[in-house]
Computed example of a mutant assay.
Amino acid sequence: MLDSGCDISHPDLKENIIGGLNFTNDDGGDKTIFTDYLGHGTHVAGIIAATDNGKELLV
């Protein structure tokens, strides 16, 4: 998935996100930091990979 980043510590996602890369100049272009500053990438990741825990994905 290519998007605005991902909150890999999100409780609905943290068990299912296995990695990522930063392709922007955000965070000094550090490829290992793919923080989602917009929320969109985390939302899309939730549609794809959220854990079915009976709770809504809140970004």
Rank of each mutant, 00 (worst) to 15 (best):
G5N: 04
G29V: 04
G54C: 05
H10K: 06
T32Y: 05
T42R: 02
T51R: 15
G19N: 13
C6S: 09
S9E: 06
I18W: 08
S9F: 01
I48G: 00
N16H: 14
G5Y: 03
G54N: 07
A45G: 14
E56G: 09
D12Y: 07
G41F: 07
G28D: 08
I48T: 02
C6P: 10
L57S: 04
I48Q: 01
I47E: 00
F34I: 06
N25V: 05
A50L: 03
G28Y: 09
L57E: 01
N53L: 06
C6L: 10
F23A: 12
S4T: 15
A45L: 15
L38C: 14
G20V: 08
C6M: 10
M1R: 10
A49Q: 01
E56I: 05
F34D: 05
T42L: 01
D52C: 02
S9M: 09
D26S: 06
L2S: 12
N53H: 10
I8L: 10
S9Q: 10
G39V: 00
D27M: 09
S4F: 04
D52G: 03
D36L: 01
G28F: 11
D26R: 10
A50V: 08
D27Y: 14
D30V: 10
Y37T: 14
D7Q: 14
H10D: 02
D26W: 13
T24E: 07
I33G: 00
K31A: 09
D52W: 02
G5F: 03
K55C: 03
I48W: 00
Y37V: 07
S4I: 03
F34W: 07
L38A: 13
K14E: 08
H43E: 13
L58F: 11
K55P: 02
N53R: 07
G5R: 06
N22W: 04
N22V: 07
D30G: 04
